[in-house]
């Protein structure tokens, strides 16, 4: 366990990567949104969605965590298991931080009536407008998912190279396209829409969490057989 924690601490040695950049992206997009809300005053309630900007960085962070620190960690005599757990623990911490910011932000927006501008940065219709704990779980799951996708892609690349990654990505794309075609051909788009409406964001988050867990498991199994 101590070595898992040591890996987490190692990931945070350079504060900028895990903490600084996401904070700047989030803070920057919040500021920008507020400026826009202020410049263009409208009576209607406005929402941005820019709050999810850091997610793209988390995808990159997933890739970087593997490419930059996996070979280094093995050089530090860390087992692949400790590396995987420690890195995900560190990222889990960051995702939790994001969740807290979303919760606090959305509460603040409610109290101030959208920053006194009727503008909403954190509260996004459908995605984040449920009970208070939804505004924590959903960003957390989203962050973990993006991180897992990046981490998984980098693992596949590390293990099987360019060809493997291409095959992996293309297979995924084929699956998605096949699903779309299937839904279209069977004319079940209304049913799909209905499902999302009924499941609500929190239900979808549950599915995404399962996907993230599957990707994580895949990454772990692959990593265990990856040589440096």
């Amino acid at each position: 366990m101590s070595r898992v924690l040591a890996v987490s601490r190692m990931q945070l040695i350079n504060k900028w990567t895990f903490l600084g950049v996401p904070a700047v992206i989030l803070g920057g997009s919040l500021l920008l949104s507020l400026v826009i809300f202020a410049i263009i005053p409208v009576e209607d309630k406005r929402t941005g969605g820019a709050a999810f900007a850091p997610l793209w960085y988390f995808f990159v962070l997933g890739i970087q965590s593997l490419t930059l620190t996996f070979p280094f960690s093995l050089g530090m005599s860390v087992s692949r298991k400790s590396y995987f757990l420690g890195t995900h623990l560190a990222f889990g911490g960051v995702a939790l931080g994001l969740a807290v910011v979303f919760w606090a932000g959305s509460q603040l927006e409610r109290l101030t009536g959208g920053w006194w501008l009727n503008g909403y940065f954190f509260r996004i219709p459908y995605v984040i407008d449920g009970p208070w704990w939804h505004s924590m779980v959903i960003p957390f799951v989203a962050a973990m998912f993006f991180f897992s996708v990046g981490f998984w892609a980098a693992t596949v690349y590390r293990r099987w190279g360019v060809t493997g990654t291409l095959i992996g990505v293309i297979s995924l794309a084929v699956l998605v396209v096949a699903a779309v075609v299937l839904v279209t051909v069977s004319g079940s788009w209304p049913a799909v829409g209905g499902f999302f409406v009924q499941a609500q964001a929190i239900g979808v988050a549950g599915i995404v969490a399962l996907l993230a867990a599957a990707l994580g498991t895949g990454s772990f199994i692959t990593l265990r057989r990856t040589a440096v």
């Binding site: 040695i13 350079n14 070979p71 280094f72 530090m76 005599s77 440096v228």
Partner: peptide
């Protein structure tokens, strides 16, 4: 935990300084 092998082509986190690499080593 009882051995150390830094390879000739050892990769370090891109943004690390030597001081940070030593800090990491002190953890392990």
């Amino acid at each position: 935990r009882r051995l150390c092998f830094i390879r000739e082509s050892q990769k370090y986190p891109d943004n690390f300084t030597p001081a940070q690499a030593f800090r990491a080593a002190s953890l392990f």
